[in-house]
Write a protein that binds this DNA or RNA. Structure first.
Lengths: 207, 207, 207, 207
DNA sequence: CATGAATGAGAGTTCATTCAT
DNA sequence: TATGAATGAACTCTCATTCAT
């Protein structure tokens, strides 16, 4: 699907180098998170990282290349977090509930990561696509497993996966990113979303 | 809710002025759509509009002010389009289906508008919030009317509205913006989304 | 021959603009002459010209573009000087003598111009070629006229033109550029070169 | 004349060192030839040579010092080539013809060497002067020998030497460096130049 | 002798904005 | 209202050189 994605980074040969690169990536997360890609400056990133300006270019070809490498990194973090959250759970609805809860908590705790990933749409569309396509594809896999197990309808596919992902992302935007306090509680939000996934909105038919 | 929103534009006094301003807004739509806010330049916008660089500042205080005025404009266009699409329809599910179809068509035909509005998240968060809050609020109104009419559950609120909006937006991103050809057809997508809204994903219980 | 040569300059629309551009070209001649292309800096050029740094880019796309425009300018100056020097002279040998004298004087008085043009070989080979090809072509025309008039052999062509040009250029380098005082006098040099052109080096055959 | 020329190179003590130094000089020839002095980078030279960046400074004090050492080397190569070409020939005119032919062939086969030496004019004028002064001085010696032997006029000196050298260099530039194919053949060029040296351009006087 | 990470001065270039005409 | 020349702060990126290992 997205196999040709290239991340250009000069892999450090020494452990000192590995440490410096990590410092740069962490500093970049803070800088991009606070100021956004365009207002962020390479010199500010190196200052935060405590290295000289030129050192930046020992590891990255450009500010864009760093951004791309960072998104790749963060995308993995986001997915690891989700995987961890649903590990061990078998019930499909419960899985989706947990996944959303985890996302809300993660977004709330790491607003800057959410922001950075979303800005990729305008900085590096390819990596942005990579991220959301990968996430959607995992969701679809979950839905289809549940379909085969008889818990969900058997005919769900990519469209439902994107619908669910969009739901989650916008709930995160509204209630985790924009909102300072968790009100309504994430639990309630996840409950309501879960009910929507399970039964839709139609009024229960009589009997 | 979002009443304090201020749009600073010098309203032209003459009809010649009104024409110049319109030329600038149209040129800005093309420029921002093609290059994004940061790569767009005021001088390129005036060149596209066929006016001198200095003329820009007769109408707008700054590049940011133009952007904000433009989003306000586009936000209204998007909402008008949706209103027109559902006008005269009574059935709540059909309304949502039509709204999504209209959005997919609009996004597909005006990719640049979609892009510009979304970039506002990183350029002028206030107007971005204004846009999506307004849209969500309309959706919520629709859902609650349907609830009172007994067509939908009676307890739906903001959370469901944001969930629906997110669903629609991401379906638009994936199938209208990214995809060149309408495949699957927008009709099918709207159908599937509609089914999800109506019944959720749970497998139909026996009997 | 060299018809596709492009000089990218933004022609000023006002007389104020024309003056500023002239100031920049003159400042550039001084700067490139003293420091050479690579050590010259745009900011130093604008400082010499007494304008702001940004003003430079109102007229030239880049430091390279300025250089090219400058060579074009200087190339014309060099050729005008030569034309003026030989104007009115009919005798082919006298023409060549005068042309060399003029070149020696010009090079001596404008060492920086000589230097700038020659550096073009490494900065913008195309314009360098343009310059020397044009000069050679003028020399060839002169030689061939003289050939038709019976003053020179009738079979001279491009090769002789380049040979003569090379002769002149190196005499200029050695005795006008490198040498502070005109010793031997330019007159003597031109005389000797003239004798070489006329009769070559072979010892006069008896009688 | 040019006795104070200093070439600062750390002579390697071991044979491994000698090999590394040779690799660096060869890599530098390629790099300077392809990119020119200023665009050439030390790190690219070491990469071509297959050694680490720091190793460079074990052998050369600076990029400039390397350049100077290289010109010195190349200058010797050029002169050896010329010496070999004229060895054993006694006739002064034939000597000059052979010398030019050899130069054309050498320049054609080693365009990069020609380029590097000429760029020295703007990088290290002293070594540039050294090179051309040395060459001119050899030519003058040849001419004066021929003068004493009665084959050439007896009053030729430095001026004629520089004139001849300039002729050769520009014929090389035009017909060996710029031209991909040898057309006209080097033989023809050398013949014509030889005729110019022998008899000049004047039309043969009657009888 | 060899390595490669680290340095930081310095360069070219962009562009929103101002303002005299 | 329209023009376009002028401004200068701010930015990204390069690369010769150093030095600890």
């Amino acid at each position: 699907m997205q196999e040709k994605l290239r991340i250009d980074v000069r892999e450090p040969r020494t452990s000192r180098g590995r440490k410096t690169m990590r410092k740069l990536l962490d500093a970049a997360t803070r800088e991009f998170g606070e100021r956004g890609f365009h207002d962020a400056s390479v010199s500010s990133i190196t200052a935060r990282a405590g290295v000289a300006l030129g050192t930046f270019y020992t590891y990255f070809d450009s500010k864009d290349a760093l951004f791309r490498a960072l998104i790749f990194d963060l995308s993995q973090q986001v997915r690891s977090d989700a995987s961890a959250a649903i590990a061990g759970e078998d019930d499909p609805l419960a899985i989706e509930r947990r996944a959303l809860m985890a996302f809300l908590r993660f977004a709330s705790a790491h607003k800057e990561i959410y922001r950075i990933i979303d800005e990729a749409e305008f900085v590096d569309p390819e990596i942005y696509r990579y991220h959301y396509t990968t996430v959607a594809s995992r969701i679809m896999t979950r839905l289809q497993s549940a379909g085969q197990a008889g818990a969900f309808r058997g005919d769900v596919g990519e469209i439902e996966a994107w619908a669910l992902m969009g739901m989650n992302v916008f709930l995160g935007l509204r209630f985790a990113i924009w909102q300072e306090d968790a009100d309504p509680p994430f639990q309630d939000i996840a409950e309501i979303a879960n009910r929507l996934i399970e039964r839709g909105l139609a009024a229960p038919t009589g009997s």
